[in-house]
Amino acid sequence: MSDRPTGTAADYWRANVRLLLKLLVVWFVVSYLCGILLVDVLNAFSIGGYPLGYFFAQQGSIYVFLFLIFFYAWRMNKLDREFGVAEKE
């Protein structure tokens, strides 16, 4: 562990930032885009009895947020192991 090249840490950090930026794009799309900016457009469609824009604002975005956090945790655990920076058990 002690003499790992510093490049590994930099690569690990870049991979992390890339991943979280992608997830933040999704975060923005489901809430700000679908739930707020495009709400009138999407309300013309519906799933079940939910107008789609309203659904994103009060249900859908929350489910996606939940998915994003668990997905990030799962991907980062893999990344930790790939780069050998995981915590000791």
């Binding site: 975060w27 739930g35 707020i36 604002a57 975005s61 929350i62 956090i69 990030y72």
Partner: peptide
């Protein structure tokens, strides 16, 4: 009322990632 629903849940994404 949607800002309260999205705002008070979406903040946890920021907390988890950042």
């Amino acid at each position: 009322a949607s800002p309260y629903l999205m705002g008070w849940t979406g903040g946890f994404v920021l907390l988890a990632l950042l």
